[in-house]
Amino acid sequence: MPIITKITQQKRSNERYNIFLDGTYAFSVDEEVLARNQLSKNKELTDFDIGEIQYEDEIRKGFNKALVYLSYRMRSEYEIVLHLREHEMGDACIEEIMHKLRQYGYVNDEDYAKAFVNTQLRTSDKGPRHMGNGLKEKGVAPQITEAILEQIRVEEWQERAEQVIEKVIKKNPKQSKMQIKKKGEDTLSRKGYSGSVVSNVLANLTIERDKDEQWLAIYSQAKKAHTKYSKKYEGYEYKQRMKQTLFRKGFGMEEIDRAIDQLEEEE
């Protein structure tokens, strides 16, 4: 059987040691593995012993890599598994490493999901579907995600959705109320709010504008339509095209006529 003839500490890593068998370098191990297996000079090792020691050391290396990865921020189990695979860890080693991480409380997908959702609530205006998709990408089980999101009151989602709509209104002073509602609906859907919340918010939406603000909206939209149709149509057909377009955008006929008259005067 091979005999340990020399053990030396690595220069670049004080916690790792080189093992020499029968005068030749054989492998290296972590300090903890060295101590746990009582490796010392003149100790005999079978091939089975060497295999077990190397396997144990591989787990130790992977565990340390996982701890470094976790030191930057919380991670889901799936993220850690991917990270270990990127470092060419085998599935058996990864399974052992994940077991140790769970045992010591370093990973917990439920805690991770709670932290993820709380961060999203504090720093973004996203809805539950968007958050759920984010957790799905991190490999969190659907039942965990559902349980966390169900703890948030519907009223809170509603309030967040209303805040999103308020931003849409402020950013679109030159659009009609109908256009703003459509844009608001698209925005809320894209941000992951449920259909029921979107419908409820839009049903109770009121957009208050003074006369000057409303005139800015109709005039801006009329000018865009004018640029499009004035080169192709004239007279009655031009006016009909203008009226149809502006009416579909949600403006009233009286303000439409006023805008068309204004544009004709400017020509």
Rank of each mutant, 00 (worst) to 15 (best):
H83A: 15
Y238E: 01
K243E: 09
K41E: 07
K183I: 00
D30Q: 02
S189P: 01
L263C: 00
E56S: 15
N200W: 11
Q151K: 07
Q120G: 12
L21H: 06
E208S: 14
S176L: 06
K249C: 00
Y17P: 01
E79F: 00
Y193V: 02
E110A: 10
Q151G: 11
Q10K: 09
Y238K: 10
K114L: 15
Q214K: 14
V154S: 12
S196Y: 09
A217C: 08
M242L: 07
V33T: 12
E265H: 09
E254S: 01
K191H: 14
G127P: 01
V107D: 05
E237H: 11
F251M: 03
Y25L: 07
D49A: 08
K174G: 05
E32K: 08
Q120Y: 13
I19R: 02
N204G: 07
I148N: 01
L149G: 08
F63A: 09
Q175E: 10
M131L: 02
E88M: 14
M74D: 13
Q179D: 12
K61L: 14
C93W: 06
K136A: 15
R102P: 03
D49I: 12
R209T: 05
E264D: 12
K174F: 09
R122V: 10
Q120F: 10
A35M: 11
L84K: 03
G139H: 10
L263P: 04
E58R: 15
D111E: 04
L70E: 11
M89E: 07
Y233Q: 03
N37L: 14
F48R: 13
R122P: 05
E156I: 05
A115S: 15
E31M: 03
K183W: 08
S196R: 09
L67A: 04
S124L: 01
L21Q: 07
I256N: 02
S220K: 00
T227H: 10
Q240T: 15
T24L: 13
L246Q: 07
T123S: 10
D57I: 03
V117R: 00
L101A: 07
K6W: 02
E110H: 12
E166L: 13
S220W: 04
K177E: 05
R129T: 10
L45H: 01
K177F: 02
Y233V: 04
Y193L: 06
D261T: 09
M242N: 04
R258F: 03
Y78A: 10
R153F: 13
